[in-house]
Every structure is written in C-alpha cells, then in structure tokens.
Amino acid sequence: MNLKEITQALQLSVKTGEDLLDRDVTGGYASDMLSDVLAHARKGNIWITLQTHANIVAVASTRELAGIIIVNGRTPEAETLRKADLEKIPIMSSSLSTYSIVARLSELGIKGDERV
C-alpha cells in the first residue's frame, strides 16, 4: 500500500510531499521519542507521532521512512515544513489520536514489528 491510498482512506491532510505519495509503505511505527524511532523504525515505515519539531524530519530522513503522520490535530512548525520540503519527507496530519490512526492502519493491513 502506498501513501496516497493511506491518505485517502484515513482522510489525512497532506502538509508536504504531495508529489511523493506513490511511496510504498513497508510497515508502521508509533513513538514520540525520537531516539527510540532512530533505533527501531525501519526503512519505508510510516511513522505516527505527536511531535512537530523540525527534528522529526531529520529522524525520518536518517531512517529513510516513507512519511510522517502527525496526530491530535497538531500543527507542524514552519521550520519543520520547510525542512520536510527540502528533504522530501511527506508529512500528513490528522485530528485523530495515535491509537485511532494505528487501529485504522492496522485495518488497512499495515503491519508493525511482529517478530516477537
């Protein structure tokens, strides 16, 4: 499944990377601690967080994530959007909570880490 299908199914608002939504999503990761995401998210994952700081773009870029969903109706900072445009990181937002977004992604078949 790609970002465009996810965006449509969850009615996300696309903040950056409108032209990058054909990216395939390999799975999902939800966390608000950036060092944890650096350690555990995988390439191509969609990342669900309430963080809006520009640091999220650096994390997504380092881990080569497919994109970021910002939850709870939070608005990304201007610097975050500027960096995301530069680094080609799609950012989507939703008024739903992390739990609800993850539940819907799961219904769509987006898996997490299921090694354990």
């Binding site: 950036l34 700081h53 640091n55 773009v57 650096a58 994390v59 870029s61 380092t62 960096k83 680094e87």
Partner: peptide, 16 residues
Amino acid sequence: PFFTTKAGKKVGLGLP
C-alpha cells in the same frame, strides 16, 4: 538537525 561537522554524516542530532 541537518548541520554536522562529522565527515560522511548528514545529520547532527545532539544539540537539536
């Protein structure tokens, strides 16, 4: 976060 003095690195996350 996209500034670093480390060779071969793209990001420097300590201070950010």
